[in-house]
Amino acid sequence: MTIATTTELICFLVLSAVVVIGALGVVLLSNIVYSAFLLGGVFTAVAGLYLLLNASFVAMAQILVYVGAINVLILFAIMLVNKREDLKAIANLTTRRVVSAGVCAGLLALLVRVVVTTPWSLPGPAAVGEEATARIGEHLFTDYLLPFEVASVLLLMAMIGAIVLARRDVLATDVVTGEVADQGLIEKARTPLLMNRAD
């Protein structure tokens, strides 16, 4: 075994361990802030796995989108509503845990079955390496153009929805309660506070 393959194997084992243990931590830890930080760690480790597969562009996109944007937004949301209050006890917690553990175990069994029974062609196709960025661009604008555009329309819809929900004052009635919107929330023109000293 050469030095390169040994290093690769060690990296793979470490990254896989981080992904599995981190993901278990995300689900099992009771402190939601820890879960969110661990989620960032899991995303980063997955990016490392992409790097091992010679997909450096995908790895960087993974870090930028999942760690830099999604995870930061999750943390942001958690910390903005950070009240440190004890959650209300949920009825039948043990039953729920057993049921969800059963569902997860079933999913795991299904995945293992798929991995074992699929005839994988080894070794896989040769890695494109540094050309990958150009290839991804070509694919996005030829054969994957429709999914790409549909995804962008979906994101636009989500953005408009978020703006409408955040700025309820533009609507006459509140979207959630159906009552007349709080007119006090309407954005006021910016008037300097200390201009009219005489008043």
Binding site: A61, I63, N71, M79
Partner: peptide, 25 residues
């Protein structure tokens, strides 16, 4: 001279706010 070059910097500089949020929290 990695192929992703400048993209690596953009991606890694987006990790920093997590550290800031972490120390702030």
């Amino acid at each position: 001279n990695v192929g992703v070059g400048i993209f690596l910097w953009i991606a890694f500089s987006s990790i920093q706010p997590i550290g800031l949020l972490m120390s702030g929290y």
